[in-house]
Simulated assay, not measured.
Amino acid sequence: MSLLKVENLGKSFGGVKAVDGINFELKAGELLALIGPNGAGKSTTFNMVNGQLKADRGSITLAGTELVGLQPRDIWRLGVGRTFQIAATFSSLTVVENVQMALLSQDKKLFSLWSAAAKHRRSDALDLLDMVGMASQADRPCSVLAYGDVKRVELAIAMANAPKLLLMDEPTAGMAPKERNELMALTKKLVTERGVAVLFTEHSMDVVFAYADRMVVLARGRLIAEGKPDVIRDHPKVQEVYFGSGKTFEKSQEAGKAPEEQAA
């Protein structure tokens, strides 16, 4: 049974159809990659699922609950976590305090003057940090962390509300190859152990093909292909949209570049 169901989803900006009637589903314990060339509608789709944009038409349901029209904070409380392309943490706070802030928000105590982050559910925050391999750095300020470690902290924050669905926007952007693989391997582990569904956008095709269970491919706002990585890799329409002709995903990956860089 599907956890997330997107049906006939559409969004226009002026006369431009950024997303034009797309459909896809996502099950618990599955990593689904949302890919496509620049301008395909990935970010618009992603932001509609998260509630940052309101769909003009169609439906987005999470375990049967309609999300269209809800605010991002309400969607978060229904069990949707999110990480961002540029990691979003409070650099002036310690690692553990960042996670405690998320727990305060979950408990609806963020604006309570007597609920200081430093005192709130520290043991739970440490458990979340241990889950992502950051417990040993709990009391360090986020401002001194390496970027790969900041992304791990952001993942712990996203998991603070025990999400059913995790949205990851370009999770490996700005990371070295080793860091990329470590973060995605960790995400895959969480998906397996906790049954979390993950919808992610990503430009690094090595990451997509290595870790996605299925892929949805958009082009000019429309869904052009859906399936397992091996199916997508050899899909003629996908190859045409990304490369025109004469190139393949294999050749692009051998050159060590994302498809957009190869096509430029």
Rank of each mutant, 00 (worst) to 15 (best):
A263C: 03
I232C: 06
P141R: 14
G36K: 00
F13H: 11
P163G: 10
K17E: 13
Q85W: 10
R77T: 05
G29L: 07
N98I: 06
G10W: 00
A63R: 13
G79E: 12
E154W: 01
L93C: 05
T187L: 13
G133K: 11
H235D: 15
K17N: 13
A160I: 00
K109C: 11
K257W: 09
G69H: 09
G244I: 02
R194A: 08
N181Q: 11
Q85G: 08
I35P: 01
L78C: 09
V95C: 04
K27L: 10
R140Y: 07
E179G: 03
T248P: 06
R140N: 07
K27F: 09
N23V: 03
A176G: 09
P72D: 12
N161S: 14
A40Q: 03
T192R: 15
E179A: 12
F200C: 11
V191R: 02
L67V: 08
L186E: 02
S59Y: 06
K17G: 06
L104V: 09
V198M: 02
D127I: 08
L183K: 05
M205E: 01
I232G: 01
C142H: 04
K151H: 03
R194Q: 15
E250F: 02
G174M: 03
A160V: 00
A116T: 12
D107M: 04
V96P: 05
S204D: 15
E182R: 07
E250W: 01
Y242D: 01
K178E: 13
S136H: 14
Y147K: 10
S252H: 08
D56M: 08
K17M: 13
L218N: 03
K109E: 11
Y242F: 13
D169F: 05
G29V: 08
H203E: 11
